[in-house]
Design a protein around this nucleic acid. Sequence first.
DNA 1: GTGCATGCAAACCGTTTGCACAATA
DNA 2: TATTGTGCAAACGGTTTGCATGCAC
Lengths: 144, 144
Amino acid sequence: MGRDEFIDACKQVGLNVTYQRIAIFNKLMEHTDHPSADDIYKEVRQDYPTISLATVYKTLETLAKHDLISKVTYLHDIARYDGTSEAHHHLVCIKCKKIIDIDSNALDAIGIPAGVPGNFRILNYRVQFDGICESCESASTEQE
Amino acid sequence: MGRDEFIDACKQVGLNVTYQRIAIFNKLMEHTDHPSADDIYKEVRQDYPTISLATVYKTLETLAKHDLISKVTYLHDIARYDGTSEAHHHLVCIKCKKIIDIDSNALDAIGIPAGVPGNFRILNYRVQFDGICESCESASTEQE
DNA sequence: GTGCATGCAAACCGTTTGCACAATA
DNA sequence: TATTGTGCAAACGGTTTGCATGCAC
């Protein structure tokens, strides 16, 4: 998505178009990696020295909420532990944050896909399924 | 792994066997879900009221480092953002923390595996490959 | 007895929030 | 002008650290 498309997209979802939002979005699009809020802040501040870190956070959250960008943090932001040391796969309920192990031979048979660059030595992999668990599903029949 | 095996394993990797470590490990093994350090702390404290949260953190980290348990936090603990709003898959370098997108049709074709309970509504999924990127690989020929 | 482990409190860091001011539509 | 966004600073929550005491070996 380019600058003009971004402006259009903002208008479509009812967001004011501010130079901060444009600057943050542009910086994000310049990255092929996945910068943190602080990374973005440091870069944008070179062009707009008065911008605040709080604005960067708020803007990124706002844009992500409207699906103009995406937030790339798997699972939750607090550490979780598991009694086994083997990597396995998880179901994560996006509502109640419950984590359910899955043990599937089908998944383990995925193997290394074609898209992976050969110079990256893969040690392990894991699949995370995001969804809604049974109890949250039934609870949300009424809820927002 | 049971209590006795755990004690043996500690000895094998050169860790002192303390009642705190045993208590923390036991609590963790009682869980089928993935408790946080604080969850474990609250439970262990019922049996050992003098235990501290710092000990729980240190113990979990120590046990994870020696592969007696595993830490289940995908990616990093700080939020990362991405200019696209589509879910995709990632290579994560465990050394330099770099995140590389992969775009593989093979992965997208995984589908829902057999091990997934039918009452969990899956909205999305993503695969994370952990490994070592090219530059860290060559750098680590010398390093610790 | 030596060295590793624990417990406490304070520090730390990423993130969020409240509120006054400023900019957008 | 009404509403939404920004910037500052303070608060927050999970996690880590320094250090003195205590325990395992």
